[in-house]
Amino acid sequence: MLPPVIAAVDGSAESLAAAEWAAREAVRRERPLRLVHAWNWHPHQDTEPASAAARHLARRVLRDAEDRVGRLCPGLTVHDEQVEGPATAALLQVSRGADLLVLGSRGLSGFTGFLVGSVALGVVARAGLPVVLVRAGEDAADEHLPADDGTPSTRTGYRDVVLGVDLTRPCDEVTEFAFEAARVRRARLKVVHAWQPPAPISLGPGDIGLVEGPRRGDEWEGFLTAVLQPWRDKYPEVEAVTAVTEGSAQSALIRAATGAGLVVVGRRSTARPTGPRTGPVAHSVIHHAGCPVAVVSHE
């Protein structure tokens, strides 16, 4: 069987939005969908009535989610599963070998951004597969451009997929995920790189950024064009445009996310003494972007 798209569901509005987004993504990728409910096991509540109640709740949550995605995507193959244990560890375990994992995050009422819980942050920081965060209220029309009269529509083309690229460490896994996401949507891919002038003391022989002033942006643009050329050759059907700006990567990506359908960022999987982390750019984007965010692990 093809690796599935997995959606974690707990009955909340954000998890149901994530399940619906995952169902649409599974259709686009021609993958099955797997709905997973993780319920915590507590040693002090290890009684048969407590376990039976937890399993009953899990069945109801999964059934409700399956009914929703079945109405939206009637031809989609859907499986469901309930797993025990601390939610973060259980989701990491069950998602091994999957295509991607989709989680819900509560939108901040009146503001752009996410309230990302400890489970979602823990999964994002440790997962070896792409993880997509979806806000409550996200629906199919939000992925598409508005109609000519400005109203939401699912009959129009898809909004841009935005990719953040660090040209000092370009990552094939992140870039390929973004091109593939744009391909299955027939969407435009907007590739963003932000640069900052280096301090003179930080430059060594052969370092990037030795040109002066306005020419520095042109230099970065040339590097980005060279990095993207193999991917443009591999995905000739994807229109890839570039945006090279001076400033912080976080700010550039959050601006680019306005009006986008999906933002793709990378997360280094290298072990750190302080433990797994999302990294400053991914952390900022998943808290403040106004559309779903895909975090892709890379070496």
Rank of each mutant, 00 (worst) to 15 (best):
R59A: 15
V61N: 01
V61P: 10
V61A: 04
L62F: 00
L62W: 06
R63K: 14
R63E: 15
R63V: 13
D67S: 12
D67L: 14
R68S: 15
R68I: 15
V69I: 09
V69T: 10
V69S: 01
V69H: 07
G70K: 00
R71K: 13
R71T: 13
R71V: 14
R71C: 12
L72V: 14
L72A: 15
C73K: 05
P74E: 07
G75H: 08
G75D: 09
L76G: 10
D80I: 02
E81D: 13
E84V: 09
E84R: 11
G85K: 00
G85Y: 02
P86V: 12
T88A: 14
T88G: 12
A89Y: 06
A90W: 05
L91V: 09
L92Q: 01
L92N: 07
L92A: 05
G97E: 05
A98W: 04
L100R: 09
L101R: 03
V102S: 08
V102C: 13
L103I: 07
G104E: 00
S105M: 12
S105C: 15
R106T: 12
R106G: 10
G107K: 00
G107P: 06
F111E: 11
F111R: 11
G113T: 01
V116D: 01
V116G: 00
S118R: 01
S118H: 04
V119Y: 06
A120L: 03
A120Y: 00
L121S: 11
L121I: 12
G122P: 07
G122E: 01
G122Q: 04
V123L: 01
V124F: 06
V124E: 03
R126E: 11
R126H: 13
A127I: 02
G128T: 09
L129W: 08
L129M: 13
P130A: 00
P130Q: 03
V131Q: 09
L133A: 02
L133N: 01
V134K: 02
V134N: 03
R135T: 03
R135M: 07
R135L: 01
R135G: 05
A136Y: 08
E138N: 06
E138K: 03
E138M: 10
D139V: 13
A140Q: 11
A140C: 08
A141G: 11
A141W: 08
D142S: 15
E143I: 01
H144P: 08
L145P: 08
A147L: 14
D148T: 12
G150Q: 09
